[in-house]
Amino acid sequence: MEPTYVGGLVELADAYDAFVIDQWGVIHDGTRLYPGAIRVFRLLREIGKPVVILTNSRKRTDINITRLSCLGLTRDLYDGLISSAELLRNLLVARSASPWKALGDRVFVVGLPDDLALLDGTRYRPVPNVESCDFVLLLSTANGATAGAHDGWLRKAAARCLPLVTSSAELLTVNEVGVFTGLAGLVRRYRRYGGTVITVGKPHSEVYRECDMLLAGLDNTRILAIGDQFESDVVGAKQHGYHAAMVLTGAASVTFQGVADRRSIAAAIAGLGEPGVSCDFVLPSLQWSPAPGSR
């Protein structure tokens, strides 16, 4: 089913009781807020609509809140922010159920240098290679790095039957430099090698249950999730009972590059679907009103 094209969120505001909005690629590009984004938050606040920001960021919640404040989106304009990295850390620390309680303490971290801060204050000890670890923690890769560049440790870890844990398995990642290949390729390759993957973050249910706690008492069918990637934002939302909208900024600007007219974009989004999962709406960006002359 093709999504309905809407020029601005004003056309949907009355139909929903709350909004769950992705961060990177929807609210900002890492260096600045997208035009119109802050107006959306202010007007949703004025009409009493709760807003939760749901992000597959590799950073903890407080770091994401600080980043948004520095960009101009202050904490008073939304009801909460859920970071998949924060949820992952909480699950690692609690170790209250499978598969978390079965993990050892030695971890091989695949990420950038500042990613190690996620483990500060925990029992987990980073080690330099997969030969000496109990599990792999996949958080990020260098911009543009392909799955093939990581094939060595992927094969070794799979041969040792090590769990691979990640807070994001998106096809594309948006950062302050641009749009790059996400971690999905590494995750798929690891599974192809016979490895076990433990994923936290969209599209998986744990992060949406966190949203439910912030939006307690609301009917899921009256909640609209907005994102820029079908496989994570739309699939996750629809599987949880939310309605879903895609914006054409961020990762979507690459996915649909060269697709010019609205009908073609709607058809392309419909073509991404899988049985029982479809996107409800498509917007040009996170904006309140249609651009002048767009109708």
Rank of each mutant, 00 (worst) to 15 (best):
T221P: 05
P126K: 08
V197D: 01
I198K: 02
L112I: 05
L218W: 09
I223V: 09
L137W: 13
V165F: 05
G194S: 02
N143F: 03
H204V: 00
L118P: 03
N175K: 09
A184C: 02
T181Y: 12
N175L: 02
T141V: 14
P203L: 01
I223G: 07
L171C: 13
T122P: 06
E206Q: 09
L214Q: 03
K202S: 03
L172H: 07
V127P: 03
S205D: 15
Y124G: 05
S140T: 01
R189I: 00
L154I: 11
E131C: 06
V197E: 11
G201W: 00
T199R: 11
A145H: 10
V207A: 02
G195Q: 11
N129M: 11
E131N: 09
D134I: 03
V136L: 08
L112Y: 00
L116V: 10
L137K: 00
C133V: 08
G182T: 10
D120C: 08
G195V: 07
N143V: 14
D114P: 13
F135T: 06
R209I: 14
S205R: 15
G201N: 01
L183N: 13
L137A: 13
S132V: 11
R125F: 04
L215N: 05
V110G: 15
V136Q: 04
G195H: 10
R123C: 06
N143M: 11
T199S: 15
R155H: 12
I198D: 08
Y190T: 11
L112C: 04
A147I: 00
T221H: 01
A147K: 10
D114I: 14
D114V: 11
R192H: 15
P163R: 03
L154G: 07
T122E: 00
L118K: 08
L215I: 07
V187L: 05
R155Q: 14
Y208P: 02
A147L: 03
E131K: 12
N175T: 09
G182K: 01
F135L: 00
L171H: 15
E210P: 12
A184K: 10
R192Q: 15
T166P: 08
W153V: 12
M213D: 13
S140N: 09
S205P: 04
L139Q: 13
A169T: 03
R160F: 05
N143T: 06
G185S: 11
L164V: 01
Y193C: 11
T173E: 14
P128C: 11
V110A: 15
G185Q: 08
L138T: 11
L112E: 15
V127D: 01
H150G: 13
L154T: 07
P203V: 02
L118D: 04
H150I: 05
C211K: 01
